[in-house]
């Protein structure tokens, strides 16, 4: 099968890649564009470590054929991170010790960002529902839930103290 050129927006700029059919967004990000913040935990949509935002919606990039993001807006952790300092979600993960090994963290941060964009003050139930597809083997999730609540407070301008 012949390769094709796919164009999409990545972190505010247009990128063009030459890909074989059915190449995943994850593979393009990691192997062609060197954006390795997007992790590779299962390639089966089962762990969420490859979560990126496509037009603001969290998606498992390991299951997403690159053709499907043609013309769409992709946000990765590289593009979320400000030039200086950290995004409030990132800062909340630091403050709450919401990771140990760090492998699930990029996907968790992207998912949390999307959740708070849709629901600025989620309760634990909403957080739990949102996190259901993203696995963490180290923390027991509680610090991650706390980080999201903390980030929610920080982004709405109050309760910037860590939950812990």
């Amino acid at each position: 099968m012949a390769s094709t050129i796919v164009t999409f927006e990545l972190g505010g700029r247009e990128v063009e890649v030459l890909v074989r059919p059915m190449t995943t967004l994850q593979s393009v990000l990691r192997n062609q564009l060197g954006q390795t913040a997007t992790k590779d935990g299962c390639r089966q949509g089962g762990c969420g470590s490859c979560t990126v935002l496509v037009d603001g919606e969290p998606m498992a990039s390991c299951l997403l054929p690159i053709e499907d993001v043609a013309g769409r807006r992709v946000t990765t952790l590289e593009s979320l991170t400000p030039a200086e300092g950290l995004h409030p979600v990132q800062q909340a993960f630091v403050d709450e010790y919401a990771f140990q090994c760090g492998y699930c963290t990029p996907g968790m941060v992207m998912l949390s960002k999307a959740l708070l964009d849709h629901d600025p003050a989620p309760n634990d139930e909403a957080i739990g529902q949102a996190l259901a597809g993203n696995l963490c083997r180290c923390t027991g999730y509680r610090p991650i839930v706390d980080a999201i609540r903390h980030a929610s407070g920080a982004m709405s301008g109050h309760d910037t103290e860590p939950v812990r």
């Binding site: 390795t36 913040a37 997007t38 992790k39 990765t76 952790l77 590289e78 991170t81 950290l86 990132q90 800062q91 993960f93 630091v94 010790y97 990771f99 760090g102 492998y103 963290t105 990029p106 941060v109």
Partner: peptide, 14 residues
């Protein structure tokens, strides 16, 4: 944690 910023920015290299 000394690796905190690396982990939350995805700059930690596995």
């Amino acid at each position: 944690r000394s690796d905190a910023v690396g982990h939350v920015t995805g700059r930690t290299r596995f």
